[in-house]
Amino acid sequence: MHEWALAEAVISTVDKIYRENNKKSIHSVNISIGEIQSIEMDIFREGLKIILDEYPFGPEVFQFKTEKASFKCNCCGKEWLLEDHAECGEEEREAIHFLPEAAHVYMRCPYCDSPDFKLLKGRGVSIESVELDPGND
């Protein structure tokens, strides 16, 4: 349930933006969920819903999209997607779920076998945008 910690982080950040903008109503919050962290969306949404009880905006303002994970090798320069990887074991997947950087421990470039790659997209939870209600000054 470390999805709860991420949900709390999202809400605290949106609340900070809300306060910094004279408590204008929140119209929408667009959240990007990186594929590599394998967030369990049911738990994440449930966490949001429960924590939001204490806040002046509800779960309906949150919009989610999943971002596919893509990688680029620093050695051979080739790019690939998470699905191009051989299946990781359960323990490895769990480690990457907690800390996406553990991917560098358990994954290799599928072309040259190097562990020296960068995660281009799809790492974790990020807020793409927060839209405030313009009619509520």
Binding site: H2, A5, L6, A9, N74, A95, F98, L99, P100, E101, A102, H104, V105, Y106, P115, D116, K118, L119, R123, G124
Partner: peptide, 30 residues
């Protein structure tokens, strides 16, 4: 620590990965 997630394996991280891992660990550890 990072060790529960890497066990006894090598951890080849570049600078930005170190920063990301640090932020994650600080953000989710209760």
């Amino acid at each position: 620590s990072f060790a529960p997630f890497s066990r006894e394996h090598p951890v080849p991280l570049r600078g930005n990965d170190v920063t990301q891992a640090m932020i994650e660990l600080l953000a989710i550890t209760v």
